[in-house]
């Protein structure tokens, strides 16, 4: 079933690698444009709209950068690509990036894009049918089957359960919500900008669900950020700066031109023949922008990871044993890249 897909994608990766080797920074140093590669953490979607727009509107080109964007996905190991220097920059969630350091890939954060978490836990209001007990509070999930993503996506939920003293029966959750939809689980983990809307598009009405917004219930981990290897930052700070600035400009452009952005996103979707649709991408764009650009009453700064958030995240990961010693903020966070 998946063999074909996986092998084909590998061919693509190899091609990217080869092309990266041909237009490598060696030439860029003296040439006018610097070729570099960005790898995303998932399939093309509105989540990465800012990067697309920076590329599409020529912000990268204007910055003297020749940027190639590689998609992520279950079949793409961004950490490997970064480790093997086949990619110069990557988009990753803060916990993931911190965990990568543990595996020997010293990433540094150039820009924190998603400052407000999108993690949600949705539960059937009546998991056992209309006559069964209702799930209205986190505590109602006690003992019920709850599917939660694996690995680094798991941390916020574990923190949530612990914080609320809930002990559900946790099942693994992978790429689909099918077990939840088959009512094989009472609750599942979703991203606000993605899976939650997928549920609605699968005919689930919001009235059927009880939604727990983790960021409102004590667990607000910063998510997507732009990373590069520490040595890249040391050796080519100028390129990094230009790339970050162009990227942030791309996001601003996306915020201000949503329809155009959506068209561009859908272009990626169609090229990749991804099984998604425009309304979903529109929803995703709106939601991701909400978590990137602060509203008036929100405290964070666009593109900046605060020390407080950094500390909270490292503490949580440390507590869950996912990292040993957290890096110093100054070592990990290179906000000056945006300046």
């Amino acid at each position: 079933m998946f063999w074909g897909a996986v092998s084909r994608r590998w061919v693509l990766v190899v091609w990217v690698f080869l092309s990266a080797a041909v237009f490598n920074p060696a030439g860029a140093a003296e040439g006018k444009t610097d070729a570099l590669t960005l790898v995303l953490q998932w399939n093309h979607q509105s989540q990465f709209a800012g990067y697309y727009m920076a590329l599409e509107k020529g912000f990268y080109k204007d910055a003297g950068l020749d940027v190639t964007i590689l998609r992520g996905g279950s079949d793409v190991r961004a950490d490997r690509l970064m480790a093997q220097r086949r990619a110069d920059f990557c988009s990753a969630m803060l916990p993931t990036a911190l965990e990568m350091r543990k595996t020997g890939l010293p990433l540094v954060l150039l820009a924190q894009l998603v400052n407000r978490s999108n993690f949600q836990l949705v539960a059937w209001k009546r998991p056992e049918g209309s006559d069964g007990p209702a799930v209205l509070e986190p505590s109602d999930l006690d003992g019920l089957r709850v599917t939660v993503w694996e690995k680094n996506f798991r941390s916020p939920y574990l923190s949530f359960f612990r914080g609320w003293g809930v002990r559900p029966a946790i099942l693994p959750q992978y790429y689909t919500l099918s077990l939840f939809l088959h009512r094989g689980a009472a609750a599942c983990s979703v991203m606000r900008y993605n899976e939650y809307h997928t549920l609605l598009q699968n005919g689930v009405s919001p009235e059927e669900l009880t939604v727990f917004n983790l960021w409102e219930m004590g667990v607000n981990l910063p998510e997507d950020g732009l990373y590069c290897r520490a040595d890249t930052w040391q050796q080519r700070p100028d390129v990094c700066r230009r790339f970050v600035r162009a990227t942030l400009a791309g996001w601003r452009y996306a915020r201000d031109h949503r329809k155009e952005t959506l068209d561009v996103v859908m272009g990626y979707i169609h090229r990749e023949k991804l099984p998604t649709n425009r309304p979903h991408m529109a929803w995703m764009l709106d939601e991701i922008l909400k978590s990137i650009f602060p509203a008036k009453d929100e405290a964070w700064t666009f593109g900046v990871l605060s020390r407080q958030s950094f500390r909270a995240t490292t503490q949580l990961l440390q507590h869950q044993g996912r990292i040993d010693t957290p890096p110093a903020y100054e070592d990990f966070v290179k906000m000056e890249a945006a300046q």
């Binding site: 693994p172 992978y174 077990l179």
Partner: peptide, 20 residues
Amino acid sequence: NNYQQDWFYLPYYLQRPVWT
């Protein structure tokens, strides 16, 4: 990886035959 796919994941946890 395949264990994570619906064709395995669903019958495994639902413990009944299922059309993906």
